[in-house]
Write a protein that binds this DNA or RNA. Structure first.
Lengths: 217, 217
DNA sequence: CGGTTAATTGAACGCATTCAACACGAGTGG
DNA sequence: CCACTCGTGTTGAATGCGTTCAATTAACCG
């Protein structure tokens, strides 16, 4: 099993091992093209998903049309268990992607109900940790810090390499609770301060990791 | 068992029934006076708690000293299971209160590991729903809407009765991601618009429920 | 009562938004 | 190969919302 990479996951991913395994063995493979819906807001949440390749985005529209991005999921990540019996967020393919899907019932049969509950609990708690960190980020941090933290999360696996951002500025904005323009401004500012260096609009290189990492804390 | 009241809980609290029961039967009773710590940030999370009387607040200090309030828990609410093995938030008595406490291990022995995992999973998912709603609130809503939603959540059980707010303006501010002054200003504004009516600083009556409820959506 | 903390109000500031114009890149067709 | 277009991203200027700092008032508790 290849080591999963996710900028948003907590470091310890052990509890999910059994789920990853089960989805891998019992799941069917599906392909989605860019912007295609994987599941809808309010849809029954009786499946577990794992990204094989590409990137998935979860989002939610409020009554007034404002969009909130829940998270981004990368190759190796599990998703679709964020909440109770119905999905609060919809999931869409951010890029063309391949996803493995397994019914919860099938996993429970194969692994035992207690095992799956324990594993889902572990995975859910990791997700919750991320959410709590996100609340703090949104509540207590400036636009520059939010954007910096976002870049740091994406670069953290290999800060010396060039990092690709698969999502649009609008996606970043809707995740960070900012306007697209502010995201753009903060990016140029981080660039002006020689903290990062954007080769193209969606590729960047970290110049001063300590300064960037400090924003993620 | 009296019906639990919590302004922040999701409507369906069924999954937690077994936990409530277990904590009730196996737990010991503890009393805390105002502002006393129930458990600390980073402390081991091997216990489950249930509020018998009074109000509990969970909070977290970041490195730079800024405080974030996680949630408030009222009589009947379970808390202490927000996340993995260590508490991310600390818990304090907001008012003098009585709390029942049980070790997870004891509950598992009595109810079976699978049962407790299932129940904790259900409770965790409810907590996550609240967190997701909170993220949307913080990301996408104005100060007035946030304060309105907060009041609506507290008044929703009995919108025609007078509602008491047990927490300070600063607590509200740290929960809503606003400054204390802004909270105060928005409250007077809601009062000026005849949406609510404050008899004293911590007691209010809803005047126009539809207008207030609209902010909670 | 006086002393203390909590809450409100005012004024000035600053950060992020909004609206608008412009730049850039990829793809298309002449 | 260049002109054109469309989507995406950047930049500028003006506005406004929420913060900050400071002063005042209200509630609480001895």
């Amino acid at each position: 099993m290849d080591k999963p990479y996710s900028p948003f996951a907590a470091d310890d991913r052990r509890p999910a091992a059994i789920l990853i395994d089960a989805v891998e063995r019992l799941g069917g493979s599906m392909r989605f093209s860019r912007d295609e819906e994987i599941y809808a807001q309010e849809e029954d949440a009786d499946r577990l998903y794992r990204v094989v390749s590409g990137v998935v985005r979860t989002s939610r529209f409020s009554a007034d049309g404002r969009r909130q991005i829940g998270s981004f999921y990368y190759a190796g990540d599990l998703f679709g268990f964020e909440v109770g019996s119905r999905h609060v967020f919809a999931a869409e393919a951010l890029t063309d992607c391949e996803v493995r899907v397994a019914r919860r019932g099938a996993i429970a049969l194969a692994a035992g109900t207690d095992k799956i509950d324990e594993a889902i609990l572990g995975a859910t708690q990791m997700e919750m940790e991320r959410l709590q960190a996100h609340v703090v980020l949104l509540c207590r941090r400036s636009a520059k810090e939010r954007v910096g933290a976002f870049l740091a999360a994406h670069a953290r696996n290999d800060p010396s390499a060039e990092t690709e951002l698969p999502m649009s500025r609008q996606d970043m904005a809707d995740y960070l609770g900012l306007s697209m323009e502010t995201v753009s401004r903060m990016l140029t500012r981080l660039q002006d301060e020689a903290i990062v260096d954007f080769g193209s609009t969606r590729r960047f290189q970290v110049r001063r990791w300590p300064a960037l990492a400090a924003m993620a804390a």
